[in-house]
Structure formats: structure tokens, C-alpha cells
Amino acid sequence: MSSLQSLDIKRRSATTLPSTQARETLEVAKLIDVSKCIGCKACQVACSEWNDIRGDIGTNVGVYDNPADLGPKTWTVMRYSEVEEKKGEEMAFEWLIRKDGCMHCAEPGCLKACPSPGAILQYSNGIVDFIEENCIGCGYCVAGCPFNVPRISKQDSKAYKCTLCSDRVAVGLEPACVKTCPTGAITFGSKEDMIDHAAERVVDLKERGYANAGLYNPAGVGGTHVMYVLKHADKPEIYHGLPKDPQISATVGLWKGVMKPLAMLAMGLTALTGFFHYVKVGPNDAEAHPDEPEDGNGPHVIRSSGPGQMEGKGNVNPGEQA
């Protein structure tokens, strides 16, 4: 859904020239404090309500995760992990709950991979948005994303993910999940404020014995506009596989970086070389060969004449005939 003005588009998929630069807006962020989350799933419901999408009814897979995964109609899910971690000196059982969804990377892998102009936008406030009317359904965004977030609908072959409620943010409201969270685990504001707020929370958590508490704002993707406060920031993987050092895969970098100019150059140069070869050397025409009688009974002298015989134009450089 494109609800911000074109002035606010910072980056556009499959577009080689820069987007509008004149206006700079405040960079926003959503901060999810995992230590305050009680796993009530109110954010899932709010997301479903505001965006008016209902995930298909699935089956119970034996854990609290419900639905079991993100989907074209499920843009956020709570992920539950049972772990044993050190608290102070002893090991303690912990139930880690993480609200999963699009991280709104500053360097979005989906946008880099997308081949359709304007199907993925990054606004100057940091939100990364899919514009479904421009989506061609190739699924390259799925390959590009370091967080495994985009989902392609089987119904309409379009890609879907969290919009960070770009429509609400555009009119000065917080995202629906933030509005609804009963414990204040999700907060929303300028990215700067959210980083400050996270710092306070980290101090608090460290005082309570979580020596490795910290902010998850991974530099490998230029930072994100959805950030986590984690009690175990040294081991983000234990939060249902949150990547420790996410970045756009080197394979995607080769495919969408090096390969594009290289292939264009190879194809362009080959075509041009062919044309100029023809201009310089000319055709190789066996039929223009003057020295074989039509009846075919005469001497065969194909090898007897000098270079340029194939041209049949008589414009042979005498020096080459020796």
C-alpha cells in the first residue's frame, strides 16, 4: 500500500537513478522489548484487524506458535522458544517470546533483489513497503531477505509482509501492534528516541542479572527500523533463530550486483564486435568465389587464390597476396 507521497520515497526497486532527495523526514522505529512481552498475541490480532486480513485456519503443531508461520495474510507472529540460560551464577529455564515480522532494514535485501520497478519502496522515514500492484510474483524478495519474511500468496501470486502500518504512520499514528500492546513491550517513535529508550532498558536488565542484555539493531543490514531489546543479545539465535549477523547474502550480491553490469557488458560488446567485424572484414561468401566453372568439371582452385577471395570485390591488398 502506497500511502506516502512520492516526495517521501527514498529508494525504489529496479530503479537505477536516485529517488527524491529534497525532503528528509524523521526516521522512525519500532522497539520490541522482548523482556516485557507476555506472549498474549494481541499484536497479531491488532495487525489482522487493522490490515483486515485473516490468515487461513491451520492445524495445531504442538506449540504455542499460532499461526505456525508468517503468511501472505499473517504479517506478524509470536515465536516461542524454550531455553536454559545462565542468570547470575545458575542456569534458569526461560520462555523466550519474540514478535516476528519485517525488520524494515536500512539496506533491504528484498528491495535489492526485486526486478520490478516500484514494487518495493523504502520511504525516507525508513519503512520498507511492498506495492502489490507493481509486484510480478517472482519471489526474488524471498531470496533477498536475510530474515525470511516475505511470503508469496498462492491466491494472487503477490508478495506480502508487514508495512509497519505505513498508512497509520503517514497520518501521525503509531502502528496497530504498538497501539494494542497491553504491557508496553512495543513502543514506536523516532529511531533516535527508540535507541535511547532501549539503552535505559538495557541498563535495567543488566541490573537484574542479564549481563548480556542489549539492543538488536544489526549493522550488517545498515540497522533496522524494527529493533529488539534482548536479554541475551550475545545469542540472538536462541530467539527462534534470529540471525546474529544478518546481511544481504553474498550470492544475492553477486547476482544483483556484479552480474548485472558484467552481463550487459558481455552482451553489448559481443554484438558491437560482430557489427564492426562485418564493417572491417566483410562477408565470407563462397558463392562470390570467381574461379569455379558452373559445370563443376573444371579445376578446383579453391585454395589457389589469395586472401580476400571470398569477398570477390577485387579490393585485395596486394601485399597480402604473396
Partner: peptide, 10 residues
């Protein structure tokens, strides 16, 4: 391949 077919007549 295409160029060669144009270059080598017939």
C-alpha cells in the same frame, strides 16, 4: 552464432 550465420553467406 547469429553473427556467424550473417557473416558466412548462405
Amino acid at each position: 552464432h547469429i553473427y556467424a550465420a550473417i557473416w558466412i553467406k548462405w
